[in-house]
Amino acid sequence: MCTPNLISRKTFLTAGLALAATPFLRYIPAQAAAMDVTEVAPGVFVHQGRYEVQSPGNRGDISNASFVVGSEAVAVIDTSGSAVMGQELRDAIRAVTNKPIRYVINTHMHPDHVLGNVAFKQDKPTFVGHYKLARSLGTRANSYITANKQMLGDAAFEGTEIVLPTLAIKEATTLDLGDRTLLLEPQATAHTDNDLIVTDTKTNTLFIGDLLFSVHVPTIDGSIKGWLALLDEMGKRKAARVVPGHGPKTMELPQALEPEQRYLSAIAGDVRRQIMEGKTLAEATRTAGFSEKDAWKLFDQYHVRNVTAAFAELEWE
């Protein structure tokens, strides 16, 4: 027989330790008018978007959107792909906290990450982005609005407009939310020319936007060389978790990066060889990177465009 006292004490201590190590994290299911969000670390909430292109059915809910709650204020990181989804995100925030929404941060310019900004205008937050975000989003605003209106349909598009950043991040900058700070780091051209990495320093959670795609095929709208170089650097970072722009709510470094590195390397390798052989852009789009076809969702929608972008960049080497 063992000593019941000791066992119960040990059990109690173990249970207590486990509790301390895994604090109670909330899952807030989709409610009447709010999107579902999951608390992935204390005070850090993520909504996972679908692996789809914009449609009336998904109403622009195709990318991950997050928020971080401090003791004084809330910061939103990416706002989903329409005014209605932005409003649902705001409702989800309000189901968790009534603290003021002080910052709305965009990880980059793409419409599926910024078109929900408009839902937060009523909070009068500071809209924050990479210092090149305003120019890049500004020059694309009309075509983004036109394209998304057509893809989402009038109902899901209702109220959507472009909201440009009011705070431009040119060097590493911290934002205070009360008892926790966010670190904002602007990146050199990779997925786009305005990628921003946001770190919640309290939980060491990295929000890397579309620098990381998982399951959803990556899309190149910046520089394939810059992106591959940045992924090498990012693989050396230590983080408790990363939140991708498209993919599961959280992933782990460095292994989360590997499929994307493999995809981009396959394109770069094939395209470089074809350029050396004197092949044309049209020829490259028929073969380059097709070894990756079965590894990704939405491959048919984006791959040829990726090869086109890679070819137009790498032919200048």
């Binding site: 090149k132 120019r135 890049s136 020059t139 694309r140 009309n142 075509s143 051209t189 786009t192 020319d193 190149i220 709208d221 910046g222 520089s223 810059g226 972008a309 960049e313």
Partner: peptide, 9 residues
């Protein structure tokens, strides 16, 4: 109307 330059700088 689409802005093609991915890295204008």
């Amino acid at each position: 109307a689409a802005m093609q330059a991915k890295d204008p700088d």
